[in-house]
Simulated scan of single mutants.
Amino acid sequence: MTFIKKSLTAMAAVAAMGSGQAIAEWEPSNTINVIIPWGAGGSTDQVTRAVIPILEEALNNNVVPVNQPGASGATGTRGVLDGDPNGYTWTANAIANNATYAVTGLIEDTSIDDWHIYISVAHAPVVSVPSNSEFEDFGQLLEAFQERGDSISVATAGITSSGGTAIASVADAGGFDYNMITYDGGNPAITAAARGEAMVTTQLAAEQAEMIRGDRLRPLAVLSEEPLEMEGAGTIPSITEWLPDMEITPDYFGIMIPKGVPDEVISTMDRIWEDYVMTSDSLREYAQSQGAVFDPSFGEEARSRAMPTVIHEACAYVQRGEAEIDPIDIGIDCDTRSEVR
């Protein structure tokens, strides 16, 4: 037994003594697969691969990332939901995606409460254009959107992807139309924009970082309340400089384990997340280099952090006419913009 496993077993014993209820320590005997329902190189793929070595060390077990893109992340996610909840198949995504797939009709009868949530970072979308673009700042692009509408193309990973929901939110706030071109992941979308196949991309900073540092994309604005400092790329101004009333909520990413797995899987993962992921220097360095916010959490705390974005996105689908069901069916009241539990 490794030192880490001995430490975890000791913590389990202490927890059991304190609670009066013993929960066995989980020692996985098979490979754990983490389904990444997007293509390689995107934000979900990047941060999941940054977290996996931490989990492998703590569990003394193989944890394998498996890319299964399709249907804006719904294909791989559905497979995990429909699979055997034995603890060996997890998924990774933006939390708001898994929480709102039912609203868009991509996955029926699912909600945030189908998952145990482990947040690693918060990502922010960036509005960028090719380095040779006519647009020098977001103000110029906003004016062009308002005048030229859907003649301006925007590359994203799909309508429910972070880039897709970002441009929809910007368009709502700015009062314009646009032409979305979708790709099987954030990396293909930003590559297409850098090549000039699209005039704009609104994918996440983490996906765009290398293209921005390599002067292939010009960042115009970040969808956050504060400017974004990106290593090697300087300061990206907040979109609120031009759209001060735009509603902005953090877009949290992480690993999700389906409900119904054995209790010892979750009790072990909770301890690992608290003691190893939440204190990880390597994950913090990843966040700093990729323009993300290091903000790990798990359990009810993670759920409460994610819910403002879940509510915002679910109700935005209704406002844009993209909802297949009323969010009240998954416990979200869009009249009050609050959760009904």
Rank of each mutant, 00 (worst) to 15 (best):
F135L: 01
F135N: 12
N60C: 10
G70K: 11
Q46R: 13
W115C: 04
T104F: 13
E143S: 14
N97K: 12
L59S: 10
Y88K: 09
I117M: 00
E56S: 10
G70R: 07
L55H: 05
A99V: 03
S111T: 07
P53S: 02
S111Y: 03
G105Y: 10
G73D: 08
A74M: 03
Q146T: 13
I95L: 10
V129L: 05
G76Y: 04
D113A: 09
A58H: 09
D150W: 06
Y88V: 04
A96K: 11
I54G: 06
I117S: 03
L81D: 06
S111F: 06
G76P: 01
G79N: 13
D114M: 08
L141P: 02
L141S: 05
N86Y: 05
T91Y: 03
T75R: 10
E108P: 00
R49M: 11
R78T: 13
R49Q: 15
S151F: 11
T89P: 00
T110N: 13
N98K: 11
A99R: 04
Y101D: 02
L141E: 08
P69Y: 07
P53N: 00
R49P: 09
S120A: 15
W115Y: 01
S131C: 06
G83V: 12
F135Q: 08
V63C: 01
L55V: 06
E57R: 14
A94K: 02
P65F: 01
E56C: 08
V126K: 02
T75H: 04
W90E: 05
I54A: 05
G139D: 11
S111C: 03
D114V: 04
L142T: 08
Y118W: 01
A122Y: 13
D150G: 04
I112L: 15
V80D: 00
T77K: 07
V103Y: 02
N93A: 15
G76Q: 04
I52E: 04
V47R: 03
P69H: 06
G139F: 10
T89V: 15
V127N: 04
G83S: 15
N60T: 12
S151Q: 15
A124D: 13
F145H: 06
H123W: 11
L55M: 07
E57F: 11
Y118C: 03
P53C: 03
L142R: 11
W115M: 00
N86T: 12
S133L: 05
S128G: 06
G79D: 12
E136G: 15
A92S: 13
F138R: 09
D114C: 05
Q68V: 15
I52T: 05
Q140W: 11
D113K: 10
A94Y: 15
D150K: 12
G139M: 09
A58W: 02
A74I: 02
D114Y: 13
V47P: 08
P65S: 08
A122C: 07
T104Y: 09
N97L: 14
G149A: 14
Y101P: 01
G76S: 02
A144L: 01
N62G: 00
T77N: 06
Q140L: 12
W115N: 02
I107Q: 02
A99W: 03
V47A: 08
N62S: 14
P130A: 11
V64I: 13
P69C: 04
V47Y: 10
P130D: 09
